[in-house]
Amino acid sequence: LKALIYDKDDKLPLLDGATKRQVSLDVLRRKNVLLLISSLEFANDELAILEQIYNESRIHATRLESQYEVVWIPIVDHSIIPLPEEMQTKFENLQSTMPWYSVQDPLFIKKPVIRFIKEVWHFRTKPILVVLDPQGKVVSPNAIHMMWIWGSTAFPFTSLREEALWREETWRLDLLVDGIDPTVLTWIKEEKYIFLYGGDDIEWIRRFVKSASSVASASRIPLEMVYVGKSNKREQVKRVTGIINAEKLSNVWQDQAMVWFFWSRLESMLFSKIQLGRGDDQDPMLQQIKKLLSYGREGGWAVLSRGSNIAVNGHSSTVLPALGGYDEWKINVAEKGFDGAFKEYHDKLHDAAHPCCRFEFPNTIRIPENMRCPECPRLMEKYTAFLCCHDEQGIPGSLF
């Protein structure tokens, strides 16, 4: 750490976020340390979720997974020294909200260190979380994906721990909404039928909600629906959320941070697999994650579950027609259950009309050489793309 942070003998280079007192690097001696490296463009959503995870870990401070400290390493442009007042104010405002340790002055992180962070740890613009063990050895060059998926449970944030956590996971609704929406978790416990859905086409949403409600009523099943937006187009998602609220169409996630976290966790699941060298595994869970990420990019989508068990993960082009064909499959509900009958009919439509799949990767992660389509066994074609979503406040940290 002393190699990273300029530490003159007469300096106390860290600020303790809890006490707001200046402290020396000795407070981190023989501890697991997570270096939170970011620019001053730290999105509020991202920071809020990270604070929530950190604060929850402090509540259970005696647990093994709480035995780590976080240090914010701010990266600023050293070509402008002294820092402009606007930049200094932004740094101080960010620092004041952080409950963990932070570098007292961004200029303590010198140019050669910044070069090292960019070249060796591949920092670009999005925050990364470099993990050091008590001996100061790097055990993960970026554990941010583990943190988003599992929170402090991922401690000590090693690849071995990541592998172990994946072995425990299955494709279920809890995995998608864990730590985001307690209401959905309650529905899961009550074994209700649940539609998670998204997109930005309000006409499709109106038709989908009306059709789903009608089919649920005819089948006499308890159905809950919640709108969770999409992975980009933040302003359009806010507009759609407002319309859903006004027309009382269904439940919605009012807090944009929840929407951001849902999609960031999904992206992190894919990134985590890629980082482990398993981005092209043919395991069913990974294929479903890929599908949902792709659907979230193009058009609308819906996931149907009964309790925790996901029955259908479908694109707008197949989900609505499947609901519309209720008269054809309702005869199977008694034998196969609502979810089983719907899945069987939906899958027939899906097999006849595969929607296109696409993924766009930021240059902050190792892009796989090849990737198989989650809809069919073919290798996907690789393109170089330039993208603009005309959205000044596009979801920070997003894959898209």
Rank of each mutant, 00 (worst) to 15 (best):
V138N: 11
V138F: 04
V138H: 05
V139R: 01
V139C: 05
S140G: 02
P141T: 15
P141K: 15
P141D: 11
N142L: 04
A143G: 00
H145C: 08
H145Q: 10
H145V: 01
M146G: 01
M147E: 04
W148I: 00
W148D: 09
I149K: 01
I149M: 11
W150Y: 14
G151T: 04
T158Y: 07
R161P: 05
R161D: 02
R161Q: 13
R161W: 02
E162R: 00
E162L: 03
A164Y: 03
A164E: 14
A164D: 06
W166Q: 06
R167Q: 15
R167W: 04
R167Y: 04
E169G: 09
R172T: 14
D174I: 05
D174A: 05
L175F: 11
L176F: 04
D178S: 10
G179D: 04
G179T: 02
G179E: 01
I180T: 02
I180L: 09
D181L: 02
D181C: 13
P182I: 09
T183Q: 13
V184M: 08
L185Y: 05
L185F: 03
W187H: 10
I188F: 08
K189N: 10
K189M: 06
K189I: 04
E191G: 07
K192M: 14
Y193P: 01
I194D: 05
F195R: 07
L196T: 13
G198P: 12
D200P: 10
D200N: 11
D201N: 15
D201M: 06
I202K: 06
E203F: 12
W204P: 05
R206F: 09
V209E: 13
S211E: 10
A212I: 07
A212P: 06
S214P: 06
V215R: 00
S217W: 09
A218Y: 08
A218K: 14
S219L: 15
R220E: 14
P222N: 09
L223N: 07
E224T: 11
M225I: 12
V226H: 09
V226S: 10
V228Y: 09
V228H: 04
V228P: 02
N232T: 13
K233Q: 15
K233V: 12
E235Y: 11
E235S: 15
Q236G: 13
V237M: 10
R239S: 12
R239N: 13
G242M: 07
G242A: 08
I243Q: 03
I243K: 08
I244W: 10
N245F: 03
E247P: 14
L249K: 11
N251I: 02
V252R: 00
W253Y: 05
Q254E: 15
D255C: 12
D255Q: 11
M258Q: 11
M258L: 09
V259G: 00
V259E: 06
F262W: 05
W263L: 04
W263D: 04
W263Y: 11
W263P: 01
S264D: 06
R265C: 07
S268K: 06
M269T: 08
L270H: 07
L270D: 01
S272R: 03
S272V: 12
S272L: 10
K273D: 07
I274F: 05
Q275K: 14
Q275N: 13
L276W: 06
G277Q: 02
